[in-house]
């Protein structure tokens, strides 16, 4: 049996129905443990004080915001190559989760930026890139919403996703060129001097895994909803045609 069998709508509904509760529980436990650990059992940062603790929401949501787009890109490619309905519905599901994560990352970033940089918003490359990513998500979702025919919507949003991905990378580069910025470097790269200390790092990894599982769970739930909606749409269309 090939792996694509699992993406057959009926099979997909079957195995995801069993998996979703597992993911939800695991995500809740990990995020709960990670946040409690991070909020109450780590010291304040010598420079940032207690404000550092928002990192446990900010960084995981920012990572998921980007991962969601990557997933959309892969799922759109699968749709274009194999015309697999579930994959394109999963892309749409991921976009909904991704746009929310982007918004969370932007808002927590602003809340963190106020005490640290003395401003809610700065046109820093990372912040700007996230804002642009947010616009890309809005465009993608608006296109889904605007088209009635499901296959047409799937094709056009997939094309938009491919082109948008190229432009998103281009924008990231352009924005870097445009302004050097305030934002600290990557918090988690292994060779950086300014890397976060182990005490902060360990609970952060836990919340990141938790957010990852939450992302998977939300995408699965939304994909299941999309599949049902698609099924309903097909039945209604057939009804109309007599």
């Amino acid at each position: 049996m090939s792996i694509w069998e699992y993406a057959n709508p009926r099979k997909f509904m079957g195995w995801t129905g069993r998996l979703v509760p597992v993911f939800v529980v695991l995500a809740a436990v990990l995020i709960g443990v990670g946040l409690t650990w991070g909020f109450f059992f780590t010291p304040d940062d010598y420079r940032m004080g207690a404000t550092v603790k928002i990192i446990y929401i900010h960084v995981p949501s920012a990572m998921m915001a980007i991962n969601a787009w990557v997933m959309m890109l892969v799922a759109s490619l699968i749709w274009i190559v194999r015309r697999h309905h579930v994959s394109v519905l999963a892309a749409r599901a991921a976009a909904g989760v991704g746009v929310t994560m982007t918004l969370i990352a932007l808002i927590t970033g602003a809340i963190w930026g106020q005490p640290m940089w003395g401003t809610w918003w700065a046109w820093d490359p990372r912040l700007t890139s996230f804002l642009i990513l947010f616009l890309f998500y809005l465009g993608y979702l608006a296109l889904w919403q605007a088209i009635d025919d499901p296959d047409t919507a799937a094709d056009l949003t997939s094309v938009l996703c491919l082109v948008g991905s190229v432009f998103a990378v281009l924008s990231r580069y352009a924005v870097n060129f445009w302004n050097q910025g305030l934002h600290q470097g990557a918090s988690l790269s292994l060779d950086k001097e300014e890397n976060v200390a182990d005490v902060f790092w360990q609970p952060l990894v836990v919340t990141m895994v938790g957010f990852g599982l939450l992302f998977v769970a939300l995408v699965l739930i939304r994909t299941r909803t999309e599949i049902r909606a698609r099924r309903l749409h097909a039945l209604e269309a057939r009804e109309r045609m007599g």
């Binding site: 057959n8 709508p9 009926r10 015309r83 309905h85 296959d151 097909a234 057939r238 045609m241």
Partner: peptide, 13 residues
């Protein structure tokens, strides 16, 4: 006749 779905999406259900 409406029994045959073109994309395999429907009969999967």
């Amino acid at each position: 006749t409406g029994k045959m779905a073109a994309d395999g999406f429907d009969e999967a259900f």
